[in-house]
Structures are given as C-alpha cells and as structure tokens.
Write a protein that binds this DNA or RNA. Sequence first.
RNA 1: GAUCCCGUAGCUCAGCUGGAUAGAGCAGUUGCCUUCUAAGCAACAGGUCGAUGGUUCGAAUCCAUUCGGGAUCACCA
Length: 584
Amino acid sequence: MTIYDHIKTLLKTKLTDVAALHGWVLPAEIPEFTVEAPRDPKHGDIATNLAMTLTKALGKPPRVIADAMVAALKNDASYTSVEVAGPGFINLRLASTIWQEQLKTILNAGTHYGDLSIGKKEKVCIEYVSANPTGPMHAGHVRGAVFGDALSNLMQKVGYDVTREYYFNDAGTQVDVLARTVHLRYREALGEAIGDIPAGLYPGDYLKPVAEKLVARDGKKWLGQPEEAWLLPIREFAVAAMMEAIREDLNMIGIKHDVFSNERDVIENGTLDKVFKSLEDKDLIYVGTLPPPRGKEMENWTPEPLTLFRSSQFGDSSDRSLKKRDGTWSYIMPDIAYHYTKIQRGFKLMINVLGADHGGYLERMRPAIAAISDGSAKLDGLFCQMVKVFNNGEAVKLSKRSGNIITLREMVEEVGADSVRFTILTRSFDSQFEFDFAKTKEQSRDNPVFYIQYAHARCSSVLRHAAEMFPKADLIASALAQVDLSVLTSEDDIALIRFLCNWPKLVEAAAQTREPHRVSFYLYELAGHFHSFWNKGKDDATLRFLIEDNPALTMARMALLKGITTVIASGLAVIGVKPLEEMR
RNA sequence: GAUCCCGUAGCUCAGCUGGAUAGAGCAGUUGCCUUCUAAGCAACAGGUCGAUGGUUCGAAUCCAUUCGGGAUCACCA
C-alpha cells in the first residue's frame, strides 16, 4: 500500500465524521477522488480534489466542503499543515517522520520497490518483433522490439506471469522468395555471374553470407537442379540462418524471447486442421463470395466462391476468407491456429505488439479468438506507429525492395544500445517517431539516458567515498534502513523522498496504460532532482552528502542516496538499461 | 466510402486516464568547477495547446464537427 492509498482511506473515514457533524447526506458511493503529489511543491506534499468532486452530491460549493474537512484534519498530528487552496483543493503537508519511514520501506524493498501484485500472477503472452526471417532487423523493427521488451518487464513488475514470444512465418510465399534468392546467391558464390537481382527477389547483400554457408555445407549439390529439388531444403536452411541472425541482432539490444513459434509447426503438427475442424463443427465455416473491397479501385475484381469464416458474427465488419483461390491457406488461418496454441498453453490474456501497417489485424483476429476460446480469452493489440528515418533532416526511404535499409546492427553500433532503447522509450508508442540517424549519432553523448546513468554513478561514487571516510559504517541497504533518519529534515531531503514515493504509483499507471515511456520520464525527473540537490551542496555545506564532522547526518544521507540508486536501478531495469557505478 | 493514430515552444517530444501559472531536451543568451564526478547546476528567452462548438465547479486532456499529416480496409503478413 502506497502512502497515497493510505491517506485516501484516512480521508474517507474523516469525511464520514465531517458529514455526520454537519448533517450532510453523503451519496452511497463516494465519487472517485485523487490523492497525489501536486506538481508544484508549494501546494504541499499531498493534494486532494475530494471537496470538488462532492459539490454536486452535497449541493455545496467546494470551498465550504473543503473548509469543513480542513477543520477536522487540523488537530491530527500526522499533518503539519492543512489548507484549502485554489478552487477547493485540500493541500496536506505530512510530518517528516512519515516520509522518513517511507524511505526505510524503500531500502527494505530494494529494487523490488515498486513491484505490485495487480497482475495476480495471471499468465500473459506478449508477442513482439515477430518479423519474418527474410531479412535483417532494421530500424522499423527496433521500435516494436524495444517497446515489447520494456512492456514485458513492466508487466512482470506488476505481477503478471509473462511469456515473451516471437512468431514467424516459414511456410508462405515470402520464404519461398527467400529460398530462391539464396539459391541465386549460392550460384554466385560458386562463381556464376548473376547480374542484378531480378525483381521479385530480395536485393541487398545480406544473403551472401548465407549462401556461402550453404556452399560450405552442401558444396555444389544444388547446381543445375530443378527448383522442386532444392526449394524446401534451401528454404529450411535459409530460414534457420536468418533466424539465427535475427536472434543475434536482437541480442545486441538486450532482447531475448522465451518462446519462438512458427507457422510450419502449427500446420505440420495438425493444429491447423484441428482448429479448422472445430470451426466447422461450430458451423462457422461456409463457402460464399465476398463483396468487392470498398473505397478501392478493383478493376479486375471478379467474385469467386471462397471458404469463409463467419467472423461478422463476432463483430467483424465482414466475413473473412481462410483460403486463397488456389486452395492454400491464407495467412489468417495459420495465425488463428497459432493463437489457439496460446490459449491451449493457458493464456487468457494475449498482447500483440504490432506495427501500424498491420492496421486491420485485431479486427480480424479478435473474432477468431472469441470463436475458438468461446469468449474466454482476450487479445490486445498495441500498434507502434511508423518510424520515419532521417539522415540529417533528409528522409530516408526504408524499403526492403531497394535494399535501402538502416539495420538494427548499424543503429546499435553507431549510437549504442542504451541510447537506442532510451530514445525509443521516451515516446509514446502510438505517435509517429522521427529518428534522425545522423543527428542521434552526433548527439549520442547528449542522450538523456546518460543523465540518468550519471546520477546513478554519482550516487555510487559518494557511497564509495563514504566507505573510506567511515570505514566502520555498514552501507548496505538493510543496514542503512536502521539508521536514524530523523536528521533528514531539510525541504530538499524530504522533497527527494517524496519523489521516490511516487514510483509505485507511476509503475501502476504505466502498466495499466501499457506505456513504459512514463518510466523514462520519471527517471529523468528523478535524476534532475538529484543533480539539483547535489549542486546545492556547493553553496550550502549542510546539503552535502558527505559531512565528515557529522556522521549521523552523513549516514542518513547515505540512506537517501541508497534510496535514489534503488529506484533508478528499479526503473532502468524496466527500460532495459544497466545502471552504472562509474562514468568518467 | 470506412476505421485507427497523430497535430502542444524554432526542432524532437512529455503532459501523471479532467485540476492550480501548459513542461523537458536540443538549438540561442548569461552565470557557476580550491571541497562528494561540470556527462552537472542556476537563470533568461521562446506558446492563439490545428480550428470551432459542446459536456462542468474546471478542458491541452472527454464528446461532436472540421482542417492538416500518417497508417489500414486483397486471396501480403
């Protein structure tokens, strides 16, 4: 229970007393009100809009209600000041002992401070990246990858049982194209002049090493053979090689999935047929024709009978075709079957992190999931908007076709994994994101992530100095939690503790809204408070952390520092950045 | 024709599910290193929150309309 929740319950009971005293009739449900740290510290430690939310129900102006509450709260020793302000806010200032206690709570919790149990250990499958193994990870993938990873961290922190999952298509036309391209590169590697890569195959050099590995394994085995002979084995080889490369790329930026699933398994182990049959059994499959797509000029549109799924029964705008004209499955059917395997594995909550270019995906997949789970499972889709890549202000067109891509590898090598992660996580996922490669590279040293890292390094440095200055002192968190903190009375000390106490609340809000970027901003602000405090010590010796002739205050400040490093480390863990002990 | 996202300082972005005088970084100007790390701090300057209406004690935030940018609406994932 956070300090804010605690105050909230106290206020509720106080409100009933006040109402009884004045003969007010409270509504059966007290309207929801906020208890939070106001933006402006002048407004006290804690502000509540309680009075304002009750104006309607009580038929009284907010200030009248607020005044009555204030009168009742005034004689409580927990509050050093209680006042009405603005339109009817009640501003409270808590006794410093309360904040000092909170700091001990933080120290005892360690980096688990901010861990919550709102997830109730519910299993959640978070699927992200899921790029098909036809090319290297590029700038467009990085956003979803980092976002999904941070979201997973966040969901774990609030008590979900998270599985990080990657699903790839290794059975469709795209991987056939991959295989053909590799075969061409293979001929090239064996000395043949292949000229330009023909349209319809993948350009770019990244398949050359794959072809060379194929030569190393198989020699000239596939030369002069018909496509039927080499397509499947080369496809398998190429998919494995690309997935290996993708895994390595993701690893560079600190991303590891728990489970990799693929389309072929779903088809070959019979799951797909089973799911299709169960849909038939539920009478959700029929053969019919679809109207032509609206708003699009389809000159060559001819209605054709197709195998359709009655997704409109589940809120979809139209029924969906599960098979192509040639009788093979359209992508949606294996995807349905794949999601069925998730449900079979016990996931009632599934989150898919997708690119904005997958717009209609949810609309189509949700009905299917409702059908196969009989409504018991829920799919959430989070759509990361496009990343527009610039190079010194000039737009770079990302196109696999032309081979013009900025790869994840380039980004990480030039800018650094921490900077890339942090840059992505200082934007909300649903707004478009402009990434200027040249500028980011040039300013990589100015990246805000180092501002946070630096705060952590400074704290660590002081703790090292403290160990030298007071060799007998025990500076581990559990020991510092036992220190007498009553000497931490300055407004700056208390303000810092107060800010640390916002952490659990922030984690909760970030998880509920699925917005890990809030963590970044919080950490940045926390680092700012710390740096500011630090510099005050230059003018005011009583605000320094290490004060040689005052061991008692120094130890209390070490407790504060430990609290700061604890929360920073706890937050950086969500972002996926390692805290640094030292920066020079 | 329909759906989704975005529009906030010169640029890149926040704005805590409706709160008090709308914030930060970068860019610009000015100060601060004999003392715990200057990858830092302090200060100045910069805004019709795209527009119009509505909801209420109160709107950048919610609703409607509208303009602008992006994405999606095929049997490609």
